[in-house]
Every structure is written in structure tokens, then in C-alpha cells.
């Protein structure tokens, strides 16, 4: 026991023993995806902190500041590309991580608390994606801000989300604070809790299979390599600055497409309520009788996919549903 081990109970020998343990494929997969997610979260924290040094959360300066990050700040384009690709990868991997847990029924006790933490983490990732997409205030971000403002007004949270009667400086400030402080703080706390829960559960030792060190080390390194390749060879660009007098439909991140397409048919209140039911259902999953789960899950997913497909096929627009052609809320 060294100095550190005496104070923490974590000795080099115990770490070595844990790392040398061979894992069965069923235990290795979550270790691989989990490690990749932790590495991605860390790169997001680093790249996000670098971006925050140059980004200006003001309605009339945000786009220009992102433009200068992209072009004038040395390697700014690389940092922003890493941040954007990292966001996509986190959403893909955490969805896969969660669906695997669902598929294998691991949301039941004793995994129920881990499941709840995972659902909350996915919700936080979604919140980070929504707020992050608005920040550059290009046409896409501006459209996102208007839709978010409209949805929040519909559920009576207009002033809370917008900080005023309509999207503007205060809304951007709220989104920025949520994106760099509130959500990451909550997310990192939950992630630490999740990792503590996972660390307590020692997987069964098997004779053949990859060691824990291999799963963790190779997955983390491969994630870094993939992220670097994507960021360098498919660098993220930036849309033109939003024209406040012309509101056009701008698609959100793929993760939100079902909700976005539903807005073409449903009032914002219904879409928010639908999302809330989905989220509450996922949280309550461990406590619901088993036979209802698959039915409810299948119905919820089918409704989301049906609305999404119908929206994608129809020629309706959100602009037509909720805004006049200057991008101002239709009710004004």
C-alpha cells in the first residue's frame, strides 16, 4: 500500500488485479461502450472549455464569434469539429448503451438504479444537444431558438426559458449557462455516481476473453482515433447568420427529428407532453409489471416513428404552423 492506497483503499495491486480480469463478451460490451462514452465526455469537457474562451453569448455577436473560432483562432476549427462530432458520438453510443440494457432486461433490480441514472444522463445529453445547437445562432440555431421559445410559451414556461417575452439575449444567456454550467455539472455528478455503481459490481471472472485493461484501453484509444479522424476529415462548418426577417424550417439534430416532425401536426403542448410521458415511462420502467413494458415501449416508439415519417413526407412546415413569415410567433 503506497501513500495514495493508504488514504483511499485503492492499491496498485487491486487495480492490477481488476485490470487483469478477463471478461465474458456480455460484460465486455458495456465496458467498451462505457469507456468510449467517458472518453468522449472528457474530450467534450476539454474542447467545450476551449470554445467557451472565445464564444460570446450575445444575440448579435454569437455568430461572428463562432465564425472567428472557425477561421481566425488557430486550430479553432479542429476544437469545434471535435466538439460537434463528440456530441453526435455521445448520442449514438448512449442510445446504444441504453437500448442494450433495455433489450437484456437489465433495468430490473439490482440494475434499476443504474438504469435510472442512465436515462437521466441521456436526458442531460439531449439537453446539451438542444442548447448547443442554438448557441452559434446560424439559421439552424436561430430556428431552434424560435421553436424552443414557442414550445416553452405553449407550456407556460416562456419567461423561464426565454428570460423575457421572446427569444433574445437573455434566452441565449440561459442556454449558454445551461450548456456550460448547469447541465455539465449535473451530468458529471450523475456520471460519477454511475461509475461508482458500476465499479462496485465486479463482473464474473472467465478463462478466455479480453482483459479489462484491453477493453478500457483499446476502446478509449480507438475512440480518440475515430474522433480525430472525423474531426480532421469531415470538419464542421457553420451556416450563414440567421436572417431575423425570414423564418424557414431548419432541421434539428437527428436525435430530435421525431419531435420536430410531430410539430407539423401537433400543438407544441402535445409534443412536450409526449416527450414527458416518454421520459417518465423510461424512468418508471424498472417498477412497471413486465408484460406492460414491451407493449408500452412498442406503442411509444411506433407513434414517434409514425409521426416522424408522416412529418417527413408531408409538405407542411413548422414555420407555417407556428410562425408568421417573419419568424415571429403567429399569435402576435
Amino acid at each position: 500500500m503506497g501513500w495514495f492506497g493508504e488514504r483511499t483503499g485503492v492499491s496498485a495491486a487491486s487495480v492490477r488485479e481488476r485490470m487483469a480480469r478477463r471478461l465474458a463478451p456480455s460484460s465486455a460490451v458495456p465496458v467498451v461502450t462505457g469507456t468510449a462514452l467517458v472518453v468522449l465526455v472528457l474530450t467534450q469537457a476539454v474542447s467545450g472549455s476551449l470554445l467557451a474562451m472565445y464564444y460570446k453569448p450575445a444575440w448579435d455577436r454569437a455568430h461572428a464569434s463562432v465564425e472567428s473560432i472557425l477561421a481566425a483562432i488557430p486550430l479553432g476549427w479542429l476544437v469545434r469539429s471535435v466538439h460537434l462530432w463528440g456530441a453526435h458520438l455521445i448520442l449514438v453510443l448512449s442510445l446504444a448503451h441504453l437500448l442494450r440494457t433495455f433489450w437484456r432486461g437489465e433495468y430490473r433490480a439490482p440494475g434499476d438504479l443504474r438504469w435510472i441514472v442512465k436515462v437521466l444522463l441521456l436526458a442531460i445529453a439531449a439537453g446539451l444537444a438542444i442548447t448547443g445547437q442554438v448557441l452559434p445562432l446560424d439559421a439552424e440555431g436561430h430556428g431552434g431558438a424560435l421553436v424552443a421559445g414557442s414550445m416553452s410559451r405553449a407550456v407556460g414556461a416562456g419567461r423561464l426559458v426565454q428570460g423575457g417575452d421572446e427569444p433574445g439575449d437573455f434566452m441565449l444567456g440561459r442556454f449558454f449557462a445551461a450548456h456550460v454550467l448547469w447541465l455539465p455539472a449535473a451530468g458529471l455528478a450523475l456520471l460519477a455516481g454511475h461509475l461508482a455503481l458500476v465499479a462496485r459490481r465486479a463482473p464474473a471472472e472467465v478463462q478466455a476473453g479480453p482483459t479489462t485493461l484491453e477493453c478500457v484501453g483499446l476502446s478509449g484509444l480507438a475512440t480518440l482515433a475515430v474522433l480525430a479522424l472525423l474531426a480532421v476529415f469531415a470538419p464542421a462548418g457553420l451556416g450563414p447568420a440567421a436572417n431575423p426577417l425570414e423564418f424557414k424550417d431548419e432541421k434539428p439534430l437527428w436525435f430530435f427529428l421525431p419531435a420536430y416532425q410531430s410539430l407539423k401536426f401537433l400543438p407544441p403542448l402535445a409534443v412536450v407532453a409526449g416527450g414527458a410521458v416518454f421520459f417518465a415511462g423510461a424512468l418508471a420502467l424498472p417498477f412497471v409489471a413486465k408484460r406492460w413494458i414491451r407493449v408500452a415501449g412498442a406503442v411509444a416508439l411506433s407513434v414517434a416513428l409514425l409521426l416522424g415519417t408522416a412529418g417527413a413526407l408531408s409538405n407542411r412546415t413548422i414555420a407555417g404552423m407556428h410562425f408568421n413569415n417573419h419568424g415571429l410567433p403567429a399569435s402576435r
Binding site: 492490477r16 485490470m19 487483469a20 482483459t211 485493461l213 484491453e214 484501453g217 483499446l218 484509444l221 480507438a222
Partner: peptide
């Protein structure tokens, strides 16, 4: 290189 190191280290551990 780090990946190769991880592999060799893993072999040494086991």
C-alpha cells in the same frame, strides 16, 4: 503505439 502498449501490458498482467 499506446494500443500496442496496452496489449503487451495486458499480456504481462495475465
Amino acid at each position: 503505439t499506446s494500443m500496442i502498449l496496452v496489449r503487451t501490458q495486458s499480456r504481462r498482467l495475465t
